[in-house]
Design a protein around this nucleic acid. Structure first.
Lengths: 354, 354
DNA sequence: AGAAGGGGTGTCATCGATGTCATGCCCAGC
DNA sequence: GCTGGGCATGACATCGATGACACCCCTTCT
């Protein structure tokens, strides 16, 4: 019967295999193991093979907590999204995650539910983990968030928006002009024949980007000068249900509108549903333009004309900027403004012209 | 001109305010500060106030990395979801996050894109951070994932499914029977008058839960014995577009079906769109039942009959179980099977009966 | 042949907390 | 007035890595 090793049981101590265990087993020093893990090419082939074999045999998993403490940084990138309820940011997130993973950084996701306070608490929590970088959505932060981000000493990207004035962005910005989106949506409706265009929006109380799009709408309406802006924007979440309800309200009060701009494709879908119920024809009686190009937008009857944000490109560029900064490359351009694409489909294109 | 303090610059050393700095400023020992942060009630009021003030003044942020290393665990819970593209899991995640936050645990989200290998890599990364607990989706893991989860020594919850046989679950399970969902969907169609019911599904190659629902469908079809099962399930993502395409295929090959079960409401929406285009009436010519009760399901024409999974309850119960385990409560029940609700709406209820 | 150079490996202090245990203080009880 | 107990506080070793630097040994150049 084997005597149980009376290893000097310190107060703590896990069963975990440590780097020292590996080093002992491979008959090298812990530094060599550490070096092997970080820069395998600077360890001789001979030892590298032996260490690799021992690591595999012992099932060694490096303790990132200890590593991060010693190095005062981690291979972790914090990402904050406002919501995962709609698929708006999903593509961007997937791109970010993919690129960071390829560079051996781990992505951690926090969801702020559009609340700057919640965002602050998430960022505080992330920073306590000494991340290598942070990616946040938009510029709408609390004062404390701004100062934390400004002073944390890691690269920060604010994505999905474009700074309206200098100093609005804390870090690098990667996004597009929501004002321009609103203008583009509205302009397109006039161009294809609408003469009285209304706007419906949702979630504006929380999402300042919706507000910018509305501003773009109003500017374009004023420029055309055919009528006063008609803006029905509510603080509720942007759902199909709310879209139905809003268009219902608008059609009751302004039965003569012949075009509607929606802050979100989910709302636009609700508009299509309600308009169908009322036996109006789209786009002949009412042209509809949305924003987001959500998964259903191409398959509803009629397919939805919409503005497609550069979701993937935002992710790609954000990750590129951060990885460059982490590699010590000096930032040449702090703000990256991308273009959105107007995807013209059946909801604004008269059937005759198809 | 003030002489720069020639503090003995150790090789590393951040500008960060440490607990020792706070202790010095408050004229107490670091242990007391630590104790105050972890159990404020066991520090005298007098000191507590002083420490709190100093912490606030100095803007001290505890270094969770150091804390986790010392404690060999962290106040972090890792959650793995298969996807954030659809809003399926969003409600569950929000509930989890909310409950963990209330208990001062931080939630970290990883997205596996339905890939067991990707899941393994995420779990490996999370475990390297010594989380307090793990929440994963389903039972479809790699062998290494299973052994990592089994041996990591923290509470593990597998959610959104029900073990089909003992040993399928590694940890605590919180979910429902997808087989039963498929059965329920199918049975409802027969009950409301359908005589030939087809099944359309997507993402089944990755998502075994879809497979279980299909099995439920087939079992019910066999039980009724009116016809052979008609199953069109494809590996593509479950989008509206795919739904249109699948129902198109089915109606071409089996024009006589009068009911269709969809593995997902997004597919069902595509079915409604395509059926509308073909001038068929729902539910009179074709009854449709979906799964998920997505945000649009109540507002499309006609509103979609669907099976609503207990999203929030899954989150609530998972968090409760984990928090109990972390509090040292012995687990009394390892498997929690919840019920889904059949939400009957216009897509299966004949208009006459309304 | 001796000096210079350089790649590979080991030593050791250190990162910033935690948790155990010792200590000191205060007060009640006899 | 002395003892004992309980509670608040402090000292100190420790968690598992990293990274600066020392060192060794072998090659190459003069």
């Amino acid at each position: 019967m084997q005597v149980t090793e009376t290893r000097k049981r310190t107060r703590r101590g896990t069963q975990r295999v440590t780097m020292t265990d590996v080093a002992t087993a491979a008959d090298v020093s812990p530094s060599t193991v550490s070096l092997f893990l970080r820069r395998p090419e600077s360890v001789s082939r001979h030892l590298a093979e032996r260490i690799a074999r021992v690591i595999d045999e012992m099932g060694y998993v490096p303790n990132l907590v200890a590593g991060s403490l010693a190095a005062a940084r981690s291979r972790t990138v914090g990402v904050i999204l406002p919501s995962i309820l709609n698929s708006f940011f999903a593509e961007t997130y997937n791109t970010l995650q993919g690129m960071f993973q390829a560079a051996h950084y781990q992505t951690l996701l926090g969801v702020s539910e559009f609340s700057p306070e919640e965002e602050e608490s998430l960022i505080r929590a992330f920073l306590a983990w000494s991340p290598a970088a942070m990616v946040v959505t938009g510029f709408h932060h609390t004062e404390r968030t701004r100062s934390m981000l400004a002073s944390c000493g890691v690269p920060v990207v604010e994505m999905w928006d474009m700074p309206g004035h200098p100093g609005e962005a804390v870090g690098i910005s990667v996004g597009f002009s929501h004002f321009e989106v609103g203008r583009m949506q509205t302009s397109h409706l006039y161009d294809q024949g609408s003469r009285k265009v209304a706007y419906i929006g949702a979630a504006a109380s929380q999402d300042l980007r919706v507000r910018s799009r509305t501003d773009g709408y109003e500017a374009e309406v004023m420029r055309r000068g055919l009528h006063d802006p008609i803006d029905f924007t509510v603080p509720d979440a942007a759902t199909t249900e709310v879209g139905r309800w809003l268009i219902d309200e608008i059609l009751t009060r302004h039965p003569d509108i012949d075009g509607v701009v929606c802050s979100n494709d989910a709302l636009a879908l609700g508009v299509l549903f309600e308009v169908t119920r009322r036996d109006l024809r789209v786009p002949d009686d009412l042209a509809v333009v949305g924003f987001g190009d959500l998964p259903f937008s191409n398959s509803c009857p009629p397919p939805l004309t919409t503005v497609r944000p550069p979701q993937r490109e935002i992710g790609r560029l954000s990750a590129t900027q951060i990885l460059a900064a982490l590699d010590g490359v000096r930032v040449t351009q702090k703000h990256h403004n991308l273009d959105c694409e107007l995807v013209i489909r059946g909801s604004t294109r008269p059937v005759a012209k198809r």
